[in-house]
Design a protein around this nucleic acid. Structure first.
Lengths: 204, 204
DNA sequence: TGCTATTATGTCAATCTTGACATATATATC
DNA sequence: GATATATATGTCAAGATTGACATAATAGCA
């Protein structure tokens, strides 16, 4: 969602994702892509084909500036920095109202038509996703434990980016936990029905 | 995600959402839009500006057919019906692998930068969303209770569309429950910190 | 020297999605 | 008669997103 701003300036969600990362440290487009995968990957993502043009737009709007950094062991890079204007825009946006958008979820969409499926195949599908979300949950919980151990005191400071990172990670943990639970519930229902069928094939 | 199919035929997720609805009953584009809001709105959505062209594409691919129905008290309408080919495509797609896509969530994206916000404003934002998701949760739970009471026996039949509807509703319930919980957790952290600040203004 | 992988930045076509624009019928209300 | 609302179907421009195409420097290895 592109936010209307005074006159012609506007920044979309991806722009604010990039600003959110740049508010913490100076980064190149390449590094932003990698951070996107780790820190932010839980609730936003973008390909580099989207990031580079967006950085150019942000720079055109005065939200970021860049410095060319020459490297010996690697290709040179552009290191971006958030400007005071960018920081101000980000700060304004943070608590501006959000209209909640529908979360599109193809697996749930499939569940809606699973009465047409072979139960064994449905079981395999939801079982696989249960494992997938359990895996992610375990990874997030590890990171959470690490944050609590390493960042302990900062996690109580509302003005600390670490607290903010921890809060988004908590959302990831709760999401994965709930999603895995749903897959497990559904797979359980399917396998229970399959077992009953095996014991009494007439009622299948 | 558009699925590659033998030759040139292809149906995207929206197409399968429409086929999933039409596999249950014959519907007009206008009715599909409404069903989209209710049954499917929990995990997919589309504007009518997307639905009408998609129906035309589906018909061009032989997935649906339509009949013009004249009405006295209202404008005439096109009632769509799924074809055997459409049903086959839907059945194949249901258990085909899904590559999980990042759920983009603007509120979590804001949480990532909330260390820049005034705590009172952040509290208001997350408190508002807690209420919003609690409201949705209550609505979904009501529908769930109604389904259990009215559809009881069907909810054990894997081949029943009612079971499938119930399964997707359960995902909605779990999602809203988890989301509200996260908002509550976050709002609680913020207000706890605010209270401490009030008691000891020097440490703010 | 050739091959591969990583870092680094960019463009572009195709597709998806939103929100506005557009039109028309029938009912209800003022 | 005028106006508003619900039903009903469509188009279209702008923006968001993906995935491919494209280029280049550096390092490591055979």
């Amino acid at each position: 969602m592109r936010q209307e701003r005074s006159g012609k300036l506007s920044v979309n969600s991806l722009g604010f994702a990039l600003l959110g990362l740049l508010a913490r440290e100076r980064l190149s487009g390449y590094d932003l892509k990698r951070r996107m995968g780790r820190e932010v990957g839980n609730f936003w993502s973008a390909s580099h084909g989207q990031i580079y043009p967006e950085l150019a737009r942000l720079e055109g709007d005065g939200m970021v500036s860049h410095e060319l950094v020459e490297q010996r062991d690697r290709p040179d890079k552009k290191v971006y920095e958030i400007t005071p204007a960018g920081l101000a825009a980000l700060g304004e946006w943070v608590t501006a109202p959000v209209e909640p958008r529908v979360t599109r979820d193809e697996l749930v969409l499939k569940a809606y038509s699973m009465w047409l499926a072979k139960p064994e195949e449905a079981l395999a599908l939801f079982g696989e996703h249960e494992r997938l979300h359990e895996e992610r949950l375990a990874r997030y919980e590890e990171i959470g434990a690490w944050m609590e151990a390493e960042w302990g005191d900062d996690l109580d400071r509302l003005d600390s980016p670490r607290f903010a990172s921890y809060a988004t990670l908590m959302r990831g943990i709760m999401h994965e936990r709930g999603y895995a639970e749903w897959c497990r519930w559904l797979a359980g229902r399917i396998s229970a029905r399959l077992e009953r069928r095996e014991r009494a094939p007439e009622n299948g």
